[in-house]
Design a protein around this nucleic acid. Sequence first.
DNA 1: GTCTATAGTCCGATAGAC
DNA 2: GTCTATCGGACTATAGAC
Lengths: 200, 200
Amino acid sequence: MPRAEKTKPAEAGARQRLIEATAKVMRDEGYAAATSRRVAAEAGVKQALVYYYFPTMDDLFVEVLRAGAEASLQNMRAALTDDDPLTTLWQINTDLRRTALNTEFMALANHRKAIRAELKAYAERVRDIETAAVTVALRAKGIDLEDYPPVAVSMLIVQIARSLCNENAVGVTLGHDEMRTFMERLLDLWGGQGGDRPQR
Amino acid sequence: MPRAEKTKPAEAGARQRLIEATAKVMRDEGYAAATSRRVAAEAGVKQALVYYYFPTMDDLFVEVLRAGAEASLQNMRAALTDDDPLTTLWQINTDLRRTALNTEFMALANHRKAIRAELKAYAERVRDIETAAVTVALRAKGIDLEDYPPVAVSMLIVQIARSLCNENAVGVTLGHDEMRTFMERLLDLWGGQGGDRPQR
DNA sequence: GTCTATAGTCCGATAGAC
DNA sequence: GTCTATCGGACTATAGAC
């Protein structure tokens, strides 16, 4: 088994480099551009080597998804113990690199069974962790969990953050300032450090 | 000029049939599947005819986007005069056919300049109309427009509705019931028929 | 306006040398 | 483990007959 798991992509194993190269191409040019030739060139290997490590291109895509999923889950678990999990949740989903890749996988999953199954499993695990973190935050703030179901609050935060990123990527920014300000107020109201004076 | 603008796709002109066929293929199989051969077959014509009507495939995509945009704008203008515009806004963006196509165009726009420009222009026109409708509704309800900027409220409604559809399409439904209930409450609070008792 | 035919490119995937 | 070489197919777009 090769040592040095934590090296830079340049000197990592070919398999790892292929996964990272595929993620990069998907982010920059869309999943349709992530062909075996294109990702091999990006990783500095020849096209046929892709099929030594991955039976089909879909298998490679699934591995890219898994790698990103594991990284995301690590981040989320850290957010759970944070002192302001709601803001952390917002910030994580404001990362363009992450959201761009997520969008590509949503599009891919719409039409590829194997990827759909993997994405579903991952999305639900992430949502469970997010919901747990939000539950703690709302409870600390004395907010009625019946009125504000943690799973709904966490979905709202995540999806609005992502949609701002997605729109930004295509140059749409109308209303974004107002939306960000509005969300900052909500994040503070629902999860700020203050005690239990939730509604004003 | 040919008569009978309002006929069914089957007997409409080839150009119109190609536009509708392309929309269908994009919805069902993703933009990557919308090749000249595929859409021509769907429209019942030969592949080369696509290039008689559209210089490139991107030009065809832009026409599909325009057609959908005009239809959407019509719907939105109707929502403006509705007695519950917020719920109407929610319902329009809960239509799977519309949101699926929208998602494909967002993905396309991420990597195709011509489509990005067209999508941006359309998205901002739609948002203006939505914001106008929401402004009227919030004002009628006596809600402070400083605390609840109409553009933010309309973005929130639209984006959450769409994200439920998008997740549904890939089989993710965890938390959806809670989210829908939560949004129903918000829609009623912000735009229900009741007078001006906004916060409880 | 619609067709056939084709040029030229790129694709996924496999066979087999080293 | 990485390579060269190649098959068969699909793609965009064009040329030109009818």
